[in-house]
Amino acid sequence: MGLDYQLVLWNKHKKTYDKIIVISMLLYIALFAVVTVIFNSETSIETLVIRAFGSLAIVMLHIILVIGPLSRLSSKFLPILYNRRHLGVSMFIAALTHGGFSIFQFHALGDVNPFYSLFTSNMDYNSLTNFPFQVLGFFALLILFTIASTSHDFFLKNLSPILWKRLHMLVYLAYALIIAHVFLGAFQQETSPFTIGFLLIGFVVIISLHIITAFKEGKIDSVKAERDTEGWLKVCEINEIEEDRAKIFTVNNERIAVFKYEGKLSAVHNVCKHQGGPLGEGKIIDGCITCPWHGYQYLPHNGQSPPPFTEKVATYELKLTESIVYINPAAFEEGTEVEPVII
């Protein structure tokens, strides 16, 4: 959490992850170069760069696409999710290097504009074996540029979290374009069971994780709660909620986090104002609900970020009858103070 916008909000963890990213990328490039020199020594330096950075970007994109569902399935992956933005920007740099060298090598050596050449040198859209695959890569790169250049809290705040998230979901379209770019391009020229196998397995892993997660989350959203005579909804037994943790409960397709802390109960809307993280999967730290994704904090009794921060989430009224927790499904305005239920 930061009050003003800085290019990067560095902390010890981010520095460690960034070092891991940079070292891994350099190791990959070095290993790729050594293998190429050993097995295909006639490869020119431009081709080596194009292939090394292109394959690196694809490997990184696969990692990025599995982080989201993995962190939904297991909280062990949350620290990686915390640093996913930097991985995304690094992946864009690798993809840009690939794209830049490709445009230079294949389109900048003639006497026409390289971008004009990119779109007009091959117009054979009816052919699968000679499809203008570079155009697909170009559009994927444009999407990655848009995402990388808006990967900052300034744009998140000014575009609104919903629009920002939708914009960043274009990475799925970029993934499809990149798969088509590789299968209709590189694989038509050099067909290797190893590289094709990698992308096939990668696709199966990515799609399986996303669909398993989607159905698991859908099941949570569709749970119907019991109502008491006053229209309050039964949440759970009090002892089902761990101390300083929450029970997530769904009301009219919206998730609510019911927190137990210091002998009290409070309920807030489950969606963090920062990037839509699940507040109910976080915990109470220093008296504040702390989002598991990026550490944004809210006070449990009024859903407000502690001053000087200004983020607010909706709050809900609770009651405790014997040992059963009930919730009033009507949300209060964001940031409304609600007296916690004393246990």
């Binding site: 799925y172 799609i207 996303h210 669909i211 989607a214 859908g218 959203d221 397709n253 919206e254 998730r255």
Partner: peptide
Amino acid sequence: NSRLRKVHKYSW
């Protein structure tokens, strides 16, 4: 929110 979760699901 649930709408975004649905968009995710149908995208995949």
